[in-house]
Amino acid sequence: MRPADQMLDIPPPIVGVAIGWRTWLVMIASTLLGLFAIGWPLLIPAVGVAPEHADDAPFIFAALLPVILLLVIAQVTEGGLDARSLAVLGVLSAINAAIRPALGAGTAGVESVFFLLILAGRAFGPGFGYLLGFTSLFASALLTAGVGPWLPFQMLCAGWVGLAAGLLPKRVSGKAEMAMLITLGIVSAYLFGALMNMWFWPFITGIDVDGTGSSLDYVPGAPILDNLTRFGWFTLLTSTAGWDTGRAITTTIALLVVGRPVLAVLRRASGMARVSTGDTLKP
């Protein structure tokens, strides 16, 4: 009998990012903060927003959010990021960065990213999907000059999409699985659009302080319903009908056409470390 300490029994390797309770805590905190940074115009009308501050708010949050994101990334990567998951993250981010300018619209439309993000989140789990959302948009920004105040918000929202894909029920398979992923794709396409609009609503239309603004502007201190209507019209007119629907349609088509084979390829990658064990070409 061999002594037990000489026996190495290593299970087949798996690509994924483990999330412990600490990481969940940080992720939840950052999610709440992120939602606040995006949705403040609707969240705090009751106390009355100081007009001069409301004007700067989009920038202030754009400057603070990276700090939060760095904290989250440090926490998520600290626990369980082995070389394999890191390499796969890098390669998938590169693919996302490559197809984004090729197929997507400008900085506001992130059409093509969702498809691979959702599939990767499904195949490799929530932690991986969350990180991939961050790294995909970050890589894309670095490679195609998309660094700007919008970047941290996009990263955060894309992270949520990847996370959601990873959290979907595991046992669903076949047609139901595809239908579930497509539903997620459509929902996140519109939600992502609305959240991004919410952030840049006061930013792009300006803030109506002295009554000279347009009627779509954010009015600090106005009743929530009032601002919600204005925002609703703003987002409907600027993107829901255009960008967001485009994003939903492209994601759906991509998932329908290549979703299944791509998911199969990704799932295979998890156990792929096995060196080819085939026999030779000998007749």
Partner: peptide
């Protein structure tokens, strides 16, 4: 260098 089985997975005995 123990890439097998640490990286590839599998069962190895011996020294």
């Amino acid at each position: 260098n123990n890439l097998v089985p640490r990286f590839t997975g599998g069962v190895r005995t011996g020294r």
